[in-house]
Amino acid sequence: MDETGKELVLALYDYQEKSPREVTMKKGDILTLLNSTNKDWWKVEVKITVNGKTYERQGFVPAAYVKKL
């Protein structure tokens, strides 16, 4: 869990989004888990830094590609 009590997951593999509802992740990324009720796709939040500014983006990743921490 992070400092706000949200559950975290670890990306076990790289994943490139294939639709606007998904998010890209790299092996080793730590993501915030938002919803894991679907056994195949989990909703996560990723933080992306571009030119020194951090953005948060929500989307789905394959559940088999992440592990709860």
Results as ranks from 00 to 15, higher is better:
M1V: 15
M1Y: 08
M1G: 15
D2S: 13
D2P: 15
E3R: 03
E3K: 06
E3Q: 15
E3N: 15
T4L: 13
T4G: 15
T4Y: 11
T4R: 04
T4S: 12
G5E: 13
G5D: 07
G5W: 11
G5K: 13
K6I: 11
K6G: 10
K6D: 08
L8H: 08
L8M: 14
L8T: 08
V9W: 04
V9Y: 07
V9G: 12
V9E: 00
L10I: 13
L10Y: 12
L10Q: 13
L10N: 02
L10V: 14
A11C: 09
L12F: 03
L12S: 03
Y13H: 12
Y13V: 11
Y13E: 09
Y13G: 05
Y13R: 13
D14P: 05
D14L: 02
Y15H: 04
Y15I: 01
Q16R: 13
Q16V: 14
E17L: 06
E17G: 13
E17M: 15
K18F: 04
K18I: 06
S19H: 14
S19D: 12
S19A: 07
S19G: 14
S19T: 14
P20Y: 08
P20A: 12
P20M: 10
R21E: 14
R21K: 14
R21N: 15
E22I: 03
E22V: 04
T24A: 07
T24P: 07
M25K: 00
K26V: 09
G28Q: 02
G28N: 06
G28K: 02
G28T: 01
D29K: 03
D29I: 03
I30P: 01
I30M: 06
L31N: 02
L31S: 03
L31Q: 01
T32E: 07
T32H: 08
T32K: 13
T32A: 12
T32W: 12
T32C: 08
L33H: 01
L33T: 01
L33P: 00
L34A: 04
L34W: 04
L34R: 04
N35E: 11
N35G: 06
N35V: 07
S36H: 09
S36I: 05
S36G: 11
T37L: 11
T37Y: 07
T37G: 10
N38R: 11
N38V: 04
K39Y: 10
K39E: 11
K39A: 13
D40N: 13
D40M: 14
D40G: 08
D40F: 15
D40E: 13
D40S: 11
W42C: 04
W42H: 02
W42G: 01
W42I: 04
W42D: 00
W42N: 01
K43N: 06
V44T: 01
V44G: 00
E45I: 12
E45N: 07
V46D: 03
K47M: 10
K47I: 10
I48R: 06
I48C: 10
T49D: 11
T49N: 11
V50Y: 15
N51K: 07
N51Y: 08
G52T: 05
G52I: 03
G52Y: 06
K53N: 13
K53C: 10
K53L: 15
K53D: 10
K53I: 15
T54I: 10
T54P: 09
T54V: 14
T54N: 14
T54Q: 13
Y55I: 15
Y55G: 07
Y55W: 13
R57C: 05
R57F: 04
R57N: 06
Q58E: 11
Q58G: 06
G59R: 01
G59Y: 02
G59F: 04
G59V: 03
G59K: 02
F60L: 14
F60P: 00
F60I: 07
F60G: 01
F60Q: 03
F60T: 03
V61P: 00
V61I: 06
V61Q: 00
P62V: 01
P62D: 02
P62I: 02
A63N: 02
A63C: 06
A63K: 05
A63R: 10
A64M: 11
Y65A: 13
Y65E: 03
V66C: 10
K67L: 14
K67Y: 10
K68W: 04
K68C: 07
L69C: 09
L69E: 04
L69D: 03
